[in-house]
Nucleic acid binder design. Structure first.
Length: 307
DNA sequence: AAGGACTTAGAGATTACGTCA
DNA sequence: ACTGACGTAATCTCTAAGTCC
C-alpha cells in the first residue's frame, strides 16, 4: 500500500523507493510519503515518513519475530498421547483414528464427545469407517448429501492450529494431513481453518493500515495548513516589500534537511536601513526558524555556494 | 517452442450456524 | 422464549501457476 503525495511540481513523476522488494505485499506497511519542494535548481525528491512513528505491523503473521516458546511440533496434548488414552469412547478405537480425516460433522445428536470437543455420533464414525473400508466417497468429498453442520473447534484445537499458523500460514499436503490426524479433524477442516485464518489476518492488517493512513492524512493536512500559512506570510512579505521600494531583494532559501522555506535578505541589504529591517523583523543575523537547530543563514548560503 | 486442457492451491465473497447479550 | 449482533466454519467462484500432451 503506497500513498504518494507530491507537493510541488505535479508534472514531475514521484518515485518510491522499494525498501524491501521481498516484502512488497499489502501487509508491508513501509509505504512512503514523499514531499517534493524546492527550486528547479535543487530538485530533490525525498521519501520520508510523515510521522516519526514506525510503520505499524500487526503481529499476526507467522514470520513474526515474536519468540515462540513451543513450536507446534513439540506441543503435546495429553489426549494426543499414544496408548489407550487416545481412544474414543463408545467402543470406537484406534483403527477409527484414520477416520478422523473422514469424519462427518453432520450430527448434533452425538452420543459422545471427542476429546477435542467435537460432537460426532458413533453412527457417523461407523459410516465413515464403512466408507473407508469400501473405498466409497468420504464426507471430505461430499457431505453425505446432508446440509452442512457447523462445528465449533475446541480451545485446544484452535490453540494448536494457531501455533501452527505462527510457524507457517500455509500448509503443504503433508502438514495438513499431519495436523488433521493430530487434531482429529478432517484435512479439509484444517485447510478451511487456515484459509479463514489468513483472511482474518489480512482483514485485521487492513484495519491497522487504515488507521495508520488516517493518522498520516491528519498529519499531512496539518502540514499543508502550515505551509499554506507560510505561503501567505511570504506573499504578504513580498507585497510589503514592493511597497518599500528601497528594500533589498528577499531570497527564499530552503533548509536542506527539513526543506522548510525561510526568507532572508542579502547580507549587505540586511544592514541597510534600520527602519525597513525592523519593519520586517529581518534584523541581522537571521537564523532559520527550523525546529532542529539554529542554522545560521550565512552558513546555509555558504554551504549552498560550495555545493 | 507454443498452446490448449487439466489440476491444484489460494483469495475473496458469501452463506450458515452457534453463541451470547 | 425471542432476537439481533457477532464470530467463524464451510462453501462457492474465480484466478494464477504448474504440468502434461
Amino acid at each position: 500500500m503506497e500513498l504518494a503525495l507530491s507537493l510541488g511540481d505535479p508534472s514531475k513523476p514521484f518515485k518510491f523507493i522499494d525498501k524491501n522488494p521481498t516484502m512488497s505485499t499489502s501487509r508491508d506497511l513501509g509505504f512512503c510519503i514523499g514531499l517534493r519542494t524546492g527550486s528547479p535548481a535543487q530538485e530533490v525528491t525525498q521519501e520520508r515518513r510523515v510521522s516519526s512513528d514506525p510503520p505499524l505491523q500487526l503481529d499476526l503473521l507467522p514470520f513474526s519475530p515474536v519468540p515462540r516458546p513451543t513450536p507446534p511440533s513439540q506441543l503435546r496434548f495429553p489426549w494426543l498421547a499414544d496408548g489407550p488414552g487416545n481412544r474414543f469412547p463408545g467402543g470406537v478405537t484406534e483403527e477409527v483414528d484414520e477416520g478422523a480425516s473422514l469424519s462427518s460433522p453432520n450430527s448434533t445428536t452425538s452420543s459422545f464427545q471427542m476429546d477435542f470437543g467435537i460432537g460426532r455420533s458413533k453412527r457417523d464414525f461407523d459410516l465413515e469407517v464403512e466408507n473407508e473400508r469400501t473405498g466409497s466417497k468420504t464426507s471430505d468429498d461430499e457431505d453425505n448429501g446432508l446440509t452442512r453442520k457447523k462445528l465449533r473447534l475446541s480451545k485446544e484445537q484452535s490453540a494448536f492450529l494457531e501455533e501452527s499458523f505462527k510457524e507457517h500460514n500455509t500448509l503443504n499436503p503433508k502438514q495438513k494431513l499431519g495436523l488433521a490426524k493430530q487434531l482429529n479433524l478432517r484435512p479439509r477442516q484444517v485447510e478451511v481453518w487456515f484459509q479463514n485464518r489468513r483472511a482474518r489476518t489480512k482483514l485485521k492488517q487492513t484495519e491497522v493500515d487504515c488507521e495508520y493512513l488516517k493518522r498520516c492524512c491528519e498529519t499531512l493536512t496539518e502540514e499543508n495548513r502550515r505551509l499554506q500559512k507560510e505561503l501567505q506570510e511570504l506573499r504578504a512579505l513580498k507585497s510589503s516589500q514592493s511597497f518599500y521600494m528601497q528594500l533589498p531583494a528577499t531570497t527564499l532559501t530552503m533548509c536542506p534537511s527539513c526543506e522548510r522555506v525561510a526568507t532572508s535578505t542579502s547580507s549587505s541589504a540586511a544592514t541597510t536601513t534600520a527602519t525597513t529591517s525592523s519593519a520586517l523583523s529581518l534584523s541581522k543575523p537571521r537564523s532559520y526558524p527550523f525546529p532542529h537547530g539554529s542554522i545560521h543563514m550565512s552558513q546555509v548560503q555558504a554551504h549552498q555556494a560550495t555545493s
